[in-house]
């Protein structure tokens, strides 16, 4: 079991179009939905926005990890998106966010998936991980970096 069950090349976009937080979440939810990861797109998007209301998931350092737990999720998934220009995500450090992990967790999620997600969260605190993700040119590179980081 590794992170490749949660993410695939199709779930990665290195050139997001969105210019606002809401657009961005919508664009990434769309990405998950098109790849058959969701059963109820609206329910999941609502869960993500609800979570965002508690406080922003823009954790600073250019990273945001919007996430939601919802019955509208078929299987635990991660979508990765990058927008090199950055957008305002109400981040902790007030700076624009450039890399986004949208995490989708079904209501009855299995612990293995949750553990992988917890490792992903931890790895994002490491500067070299962030740097590598920022500099990657191909979707496959992103997956390789994550595979390397999260064993």
């Amino acid at each position: 079991m590794n992170i490749s069950e949660l993410i695939s090349k199709e779930l990665i976009s290195l050139d997001l179009q969105a210019d606002t937080k809401a657009e961005l979440i919508n664009e990434m939810v769309e990405l998950l939905d098109q790849n058959g990861r969701l059963s109820d797109k609206d329910a999941f998007e609502k869960a993500v926005l609800e979570r965002e209301k508690t406080y922003s998931t823009g954790i600073g350092m250019g990273i945001a990890i919007p996430h939601g737990k919802s019955a509208g999720v078929k299987k635990a998934s991660i979508a990765f998106g990058r927008k090199n220009k950055g957008i305002d995500f109400d981040s902790l450090d007030g700076k624009p966010a450039k890399m986004f992990f949208l995490i989708a967790v079904p209501e009855a999620s299995n612990d293995v998936h949750l553990k992988i997600l917890s490792k992903l969260s931890r790895s994002l605190m490491h500067e070299q991980t962030r740097k590598a993700l920022m500099e990657a040119n191909e979707a496959q590179d992103i997956i390789n970096i994550l595979l390397e980081e999260i064993k």
């Binding site: 967790v105 949750l114 997600l117 605190m125």
Partner: peptide, 17 residues
């Protein structure tokens, strides 16, 4: 943290680092 998916672990990692 509320959902217990991400922030919990990032905070833990940050403290450990």
């Amino acid at each position: 943290c509320p959902t217990g998916i991400a922030h919990t672990y990032m905070a833990a990692e940050a403290l450990e680092l």
